[in-house]
Design a protein around this nucleic acid. Structure first.
Lengths: 187, 187
DNA sequence: GCAAATTAATGATTTATTCAAG
DNA sequence: CTTGAATAAATCATTAATTTGC
């Protein structure tokens, strides 16, 4: 709050790189790749920064957020359920679980899969660090019911919501890319 | 591939947790959540481990992999393009870029968005660590063309490919979960 | 020359750290 | 100050190189 100036500069991503004046030796870079334009990717299309259209606000529960770049603001019910699951033993849910959880929690307010994912990550990390800070009598500092190194497969894939979303009431645009705040100190 | 014994134990995910005998105090857990079954999520549905069907091998380039749980094995063209992009300055591509890159690289072999994402993460990290190991005369150890702390929004979402995939030649099942080799020594 | 055994690379996940909104 | 979001570091796990014994 307060002194949080937000730069709106809409320059491209890679303009801070004149021409790669590094003299990296072109070792074994003799690829026989055909028909490929690097420029296509270097310059990501100068998005027109379409402002979010007038939202209809369907779900009522709390501020609808999204569509502008705000972050998820969980409701009490959502937190409750998540904590219950955490206490139930879930630490890093699989994609499948995340899907289901998201669907369930969606009843209580707007939510995305990544929110669920992040919530578990953060909660786990912070519980751990809280426990570490309370390492007074570390007699039984065994990590009780955490995931004991079984490597599960996450299996996700990107789904970019851009360019005319599915037309239904999906997340539309949500463009925060060119719009980054800068913080006063080097923290 | 000789003494690599593979455990096939197909027990469920959370069976290493009888009933959470922890006596965690039920602090402020008086949520008024209704109609929600925790068990649904605790027990993720005992997938029947369907073996991959006979693959037709469509793309010719190299071993088709996938469909069983193997990892992405990039072709020379793909590596070439990715390295070119990296040298071009791309470090952590946005979801939008990843989408495009994936599409392009798809011409040279099977690939997913997450492969592109991981490739950049790993390549960046390993370049950095390689450079750190060569810190002989650290005169100009400035991180040259890396992303200088601009926080972009990644914007991804989960897409679980399970339960009868889209029917086309998509990734089906890919279950490597319970199947881990054990190595004789502590690595 | 060739497969098994070993090692080196590197793809895929998880954990730690950091940034920033509210 | 709390915590959602994102990135970096550490770690695990698999595949390709490479070596080795025949």
């Amino acid at each position: 709050m307060g002194n949080m100036k937000v730069h709106q500069l809409a320059r491209g991503f890679w303009e801070h790189e004149p021409s790669l004046s590094l003299s990296c030796k072109p070792s074994s870079a003799n690829h026989t790749l055909s028909s490929f334009d690097l420029q296509t990717f270097i310059r990501p299309k100068t998005t027109p920064t379409k402002p979010p259209s007038s939202d209809h606000n369907s779900h009522s529960h709390q501020v609808d957020m999204q569509a502008g770049g705000t972050r998820w603001n969980p409701t009490q019910e959502q937190i409750g359920i998540l904590e219950m699951m955490y206490r139930g033993g879930i630490r890093t849910p699989t994609a499948q679980q995340i899907e289901q959880i998201t669907e369930q929690l969606g009843k209580y307010g707007k939510i995305e899969g990544k929110n669920v994912f992040y919530w578990f990550q953060n909660h786990k990390a912070r519980e751990r660090q809280k426990q570490k800070r309370n390492s007074h009598c570390p007699s039984n500092s065994r990590d009780e019911a955490d995931t004991p190194y079984k490597r599960k497969c996450r299996r996700w894939s990107f789904t970019c919501m851009e360019e005319e979303s599915i037309s239904s009431f999906k997340v539309e645009e949500t463009r925060t890319l060119e719009l980054f705040p800068l913080h006063p100190e080097g923290r």
